[in-house]
Computed example of a mutant assay.
Amino acid sequence: MTDKPLSTSLYEQIKHFIRSEIGRQAWKPGDLLPSEHELTRRFAVSRITVKKAMSDLVKEGLVYRIQGKGSYVSPMDGKAPAAPSGIDSVPLRSPVALLLPFINNRFNALLLGGVESVLAEAGYPLLFCHTGNSQANEERILRRLKQAPLAGLIVYPVEGETYNRELVQLALDDVPFVVVDRDLRGIDTHFVGADNVAGAREAVGHLISLGHRNIGFVSTVVAGTSSIEDRLAGYEQAHADYRLPIDRRFRLAHLEIEVPKQAELRSFLARNPDMTAVFAINPGLGLEVADAARGLGLRLPQELSLVFFDDFEFSEFHAVRPSCVVQDSRQLGQEAARMLLAVIEQPRRERRKLFLPPHLLLRDSAVPPVRREA
């Protein structure tokens, strides 16, 4: 079928096969080519891979398409004949799929809007998929999407220590694919996210500059989620910057998502009365810490200062306006979409990782610690 080396990707093998068949005149100008479904079966690949290979051949002028009819070998002059009934022979844009773990927060809503604005301008429809932060759902959705005529995917992975097989296969198949927010370490992918290390480092450094020495770190399970790992690294680097030892008593880093946390947080605060500040990895946990502190009769921020990563809607109207690390999630979505468009145009381009700088928004929840009398 092909004299290409076995190491050549399936994506390139498909293009080489079609070029070879046209070159030896097995298919002549004007002939209808095998359908995407037939090529998918022949090469045992996803429809995304086949569609991208065909799109490249259209750009080369070797193939033209007629909507609703199929793909054809171009005439010798490389010019596709006019499509009947006024149908444009230029291929229509296939949709881009966006997978998000949550849709119930401000961050993801703005991210989605950023992605959509760039894709719409480029003529790509957006297909949104909600994984519910479940690896099983994520894998099932990706398996289904492999059969759809997509131009590419943007994936915000779920939390967890392992990556599902479908994500790994996307990278191996050279499918146009960009990861946002949570990098897949150990897998070579295009990625856009915030500089979580720098953001956490600045936040904890601010607490230290206010005079805090016993600073808590509160998170869900750290291992396997790059954004949380990086925020912990930033917390530790801030201590190193000020040459402060890290006391592991002040780390609560195993909380489960969607599990009641008040009892565990109250216990954590009660057994560490010398802890004067807390850095939490997200607004949900930050607000939970505040509720637990109030439940113990602690005054915020006088007896417990608090800073967390990301802002939340209407935070300006909160009883104690939170100081937080702010990342521009709309810009993150825009940059992810731009990166994907570049990958669609040049699938074999070198993998790129883009880290956007966040900034610390200072409000009322972090103040110098109260000097308690002995």
Rank of each mutant, 00 (worst) to 15 (best):
L110E: 15
Y72Q: 10
S74A: 15
Y124F: 15
L98K: 07
A109I: 08
A97S: 15
A83F: 15
K69E: 14
M76T: 13
L126C: 05
T131K: 00
T131N: 01
Y72H: 12
I103V: 13
L112H: 03
P125R: 04
I103Q: 15
G114P: 04
G123E: 03
Y72K: 08
A80M: 06
I103E: 10
F107W: 10
C129V: 12
N108W: 13
V115N: 02
R106F: 10
L100G: 03
L100C: 06
A109T: 12
S94T: 08
S94A: 13
N105K: 05
C129Q: 09
S117T: 10
Y72E: 11
A97P: 05
G113T: 14
S71V: 03
S89K: 06
A80V: 08
F102H: 15
A83H: 14
S117P: 02
D88C: 11
E116R: 07
F128N: 01
L111C: 13
E121W: 02
S85P: 00
G132E: 01
P81T: 11
G123S: 01
V118Y: 00
Y72M: 08
S117H: 05
L119M: 10
G70P: 06
S134K: 04
A82R: 11
V90H: 13
F102G: 02
N137L: 01
S89F: 11
I103G: 10
A122V: 03
S89V: 15
L111D: 01
S94N: 13
Y72L: 06
S74M: 08
V118A: 09
D88N: 15
S89R: 14
S134I: 00
L119G: 02
A122P: 00
K69Q: 14
R93I: 04
F128T: 07
N137H: 05
L99G: 06
T131Q: 01
F128I: 11
A80F: 12
E116S: 11
I87M: 12
V73C: 09
K79F: 14
Y124G: 00
L110G: 00
L126P: 00
A80H: 09
N133P: 01
L119F: 04
L112A: 12
I87E: 10
R93V: 02
A80D: 10
V118F: 01
S85K: 07
E138S: 03
P125S: 03
R106W: 11
P91S: 08
S134H: 02
G132M: 01
V90M: 07
P95Q: 12
A97K: 07
S85F: 14
F128G: 00
F102V: 07
N133S: 05
N105W: 02
M76N: 14
V96K: 04
C129G: 02
V96T: 07
K79E: 14
A97W: 08
A136Q: 10
R106C: 04
G70L: 10
S94L: 06
A97Q: 06
E116D: 11
L98Q: 05
S117Y: 00
P91G: 09
V115L: 05
N133K: 02
L92D: 09
P84G: 09
G132C: 04
K69W: 14
A136S: 09
E116C: 04
L98F: 15
Q135P: 01
P84L: 09
